[in-house]
Design a protein around this nucleic acid. Sequence first.
RNA 1: GUGAGCGUAGCUCAGGUGGUUAGAGCAUCAGGUUGUGGCCCUGAGGGUCGUGGGUUCAAGUCCCAUCGCUCACCCCA
Length: 419
Amino acid sequence: MIKAVTGTKDILPDEINGWYYLENLIRQIFSSFNYKEIRTPVFEETILFARGIGEETDIVGKEMYSFTDRGGESLTLKPEMTAPVVRSYIEHSLGSKQQLNKLFYISPMFRQERPQAGRFRQFHQFGAEAIGSSSPILDVEMIQMAYQILKSLGLKDLSVKINSLGIPEARDNYKSELKKFLADKKDKLSEDSRKRFDKNILRIFDSKMESDQELLADAPHLLDYLDAESKNDFEQVQALLKILDIPFDVDAKLVRGLDYYTKTTFEIISSKVGSQSALCGGGRYDMLIEQLGGKATPAVGFAAGMERILLACENENSFTLPDDKIDLYIIRLEKDLLHNVFKLASDLRDQNFVIDFDYSDRSVKAQMREANKLNARFVLFVGGDEYKDGLLNLKYMDSGQQQLIALNDIEALIKIMSK
RNA sequence: GUGAGCGUAGCUCAGGUGGUUAGAGCAUCAGGUUGUGGCCCUGAGGGUCGUGGGUUCAAGUCCCAUCGCUCACCCCA
């Protein structure tokens, strides 16, 4: 049997309503902040991600689905959306059409990682990017939109973590201080953390090893090394979050894994999704546009994992969807009335009613059972003596009540079903 | 890339110490009299017991390999 590839899955009809619900909510909330949707291709030139995300990151180093096409070009299935959006922003000179571009997206992403609870190789993210302003108001707007979407889904067990990485110079200063601090403790660190020491020392803070965390207890604080501007912005962010009544924790250990982040970073986590607890993450990336060949432009954004969010919703039982219903199931009492039923269904479907009927020649009982299973509001019997008199028998499925309707008075039927 | 657990009908699972035609519930389909649902009753279909090899007179049940799934590490949404 041919099965879906490891780490991918089908979204089946019985779970699609949850996705519609989430997608509608996303579009509605982003729209209320006047963000416009952008769609980019699923694949891009590999170099976009290598340059944008950073050669040293795990995503680029070992998780990308890259392939060479017949023209010999190296292409990659997008592992994240910020680089493609920025590429598009530069390519189409969106910055010269308006000062600030507020964009959002909903899209599949691809990363070749070992699947796990809340993690797949093809997964879906929604997110937003505000390109063209350095105002911390936009930093907060990102958190606000993400938080509002999660809250609207009924999620309760959320916590917002924020941090500031400062401008690159400030961060570099801090890195060398941290390096000094850990130099004589290096051999006590875990194996993974020793690797991080050389590759990306900030990530040592991510370690789940208690021994590492003990060694870090007295480490210098990143926030103490912030430049004046970053510090001021970060205070602004906190003040604005308080105005919005969004609870948050400053977490100096929150270090994002993508190279492009500057200043504010944030994450919203839920304890209801297993160990992959980050539902969304983002931050400011003031250097990226220039780095990808555009004019130096400040920007901020976030991305959220939709499978994780849906998983959290399921585990918290945060919302319930109404059962699927159809308006009318048409039952034919005689087999030779197929054409009449077919035409009637067609006419009513033109009026935007959800209509179904039996495609084989099943018994009336079987058709009734089907109507019941489909949660039909009404059943219409076509055939029998009343049909010879030009009448149809309409049944209200909730009450069981029946009523006759003239075959030439479809308007009456429409009127009843419209209620 | 590393580690652990698990693989029996569409789904959830039973199948002491290996022994005749592998079971249940749910789901599906058909019936329960003449043209009518949800409950109930009856019946039917559906499984190379993940795959391959080995031990044995005999394996779903033991051993090995392999594939797949799940969870965790790593990393990230």
